[in-house]
């Protein structure tokens, strides 16, 4: 049912959870591409135990670079029409991915569907995290020309056109804002879809800190000069 869909999962030191996340996703999706971003734990061995395809960075490059590698690998398969970016820590629900892919199929004029926590429900989000995300969204809407309710959601589904044209050059976490910029620049038609994020203690511990959002803003500003 989802032979035309490929999941791209960037993995960095997720050995404790990655196998479970993949096995759960494999119940619905056949094509799963895990990009092991030079993990120092045994994430690669855990991925190899599953039916997911393993693409491995020799050294750690960052999540943005992993996504681009995963997309490059996925688009080699001409039968893949839809590409999904999916977080490795188990915070996304497969149900939401299914709905988003269906939405793209039914609305071929839409190029990319972005998951939004604030249209959907969010389980166990801390107040500090909410304030941080809301300010990131305000900043993003101001600078990018793309109006969204959620700016840093790892769950996205897009078609082959986006997979071909998207070029993620921000290797670290700033890639989320970069993707939004490119939606504007390359005039992809986009829509948001309500998704539920499951904040477990594990994903909370790995989440972005306040200081990291300062890095993101700095990188976006310097990118305009150093391009």
């Amino acid at each position: 049912m989802f032979e035309d869909t490929a999941l791209v999962i960037p993995v960095y030191n997720e050995a404790t959870v990655i196998k479970g996340v993949i096995e759960n996703a494999l119940l619905t999706f056949d094509k799963i591409i895990c990009v092991d971003d030079g993990s120092s734990d045994n994430s690669d061995a855990e991925i190899s135990k599953t039916g997911a395809k393993l693409v491995q960075h020799a050294i750690n490059l960052g999540q943005g670079a992993s996504l681009q590698t995963g997309i490059d690998f996925a688009k080699q398969d001409p039968t893949t029409k839809y590409f999904v970016t999916f977080d490795a820590d188990g915070q996304h629900r497969i149900e939401d991915v299914k709905e988003m892919v269906k939405y793209l199929r039914e609305n071929p004029e839409v190029d990319i569907v972005l998951g939004s926590r604030f249209l959907g429900k969010t389980e166990n989000m801390t107040k500090a995290k909410e304030i941080l995300l809301k300010s990131a969204i305000a900043f993003s809407n101001k600078t990018s020309g793309v109006k969204l309710t959620d700016a840093h959601n790892g769950l996205r589904v897009f078609n082959r056109k986006v997979a071909q044209e998207l070029r993620i050059s921000m290797n670290d976490m700033a890639h989320a804002s970069e993707i939004i910029h490119q939606i504007h620049e390359k005039k992809f038609s986009y829509t948001e879809y309500p998704v539920t994020i499951i904040y477990t203690d594990y994903s909370k511990a790995k989440g972005q800190s306040l200081m990291n959002s300062i890095n993101i803003v700095f990188d976006l500003l310097i990118r305009k000069i150093a391009k």
Partner: peptide, 10 residues
């Protein structure tokens, strides 16, 4: 690194 990763995976 990306080129190497894709070559290996392929």
């Amino acid at each position: 690194v990306r080129k190497l990763a894709l070559i290996e995976a392929n």
